[in-house]
């Protein structure tokens, strides 16, 4: 198993991406969804276009650590990488921030466990 100590690949260069990583490097799926919903297509597209070519390198770098040993300095990069999943459909399928042929996505409340039905 690899650890931070024997990580072979060094941290990718991020210069030029700092603003995107700061804006989209949010720790939860829900926060990244809100970020998408409160952005316009230009903002989403500029994030997507800037990140996409760098993504394989970011993932390979992050992938060499056990999950709980990803360096703190790389968390924002990890979250911004996950935010790319959140904007994929908007860019590649809808050309729009939201899907107009589905229910309001915020009606779907994420569960925390199988029995979680919220306050009853």
């Amino acid at each position: 198993m690899s650890t931070a100590a024997n990580a072979t690949q060094s941290r990718p260069e991020i210069s030029g991406l700092e603003n995107h990583l700061a804006a989209w490097g949010l720790p939860t799926t829900e926060k990244r969804l809100s970020k998408r919903l409160s952005s316009n297509m230009e903002e989403v597209r500029s994030f997507y276009d800037a990140m996409l070519p760098r993504l394989p390198e970011f993932i390979e770098y992050l992938n060499q650590f056990p999950l709980d040993a990803i360096p703190k300095e790389a968390h924002q990069m990890a979250w911004a990488t996950l935010a790319m999943c959140e904007v994929d459909n908007a860019i590649n399928k809808w050309n729009d921030i939201t899907l107009d042929t589905g229910i309001d996505i915020l009606r779907m409340i994420p569960k925390k466990s199988f029995p979680d039905r919220g306050q009853q």
């Binding site: 229910i103 009606r107 779907m108 409340i109 994420p110 569960k111 199988f114 979680d116 039905r117 919220g118």
Partner: peptide
């Protein structure tokens, strides 16, 4: 093991 889910 349970991974994720939603309710509405």
């Amino acid at each position: 093991s349970w991974s994720f889910g939603w309710r509405a």
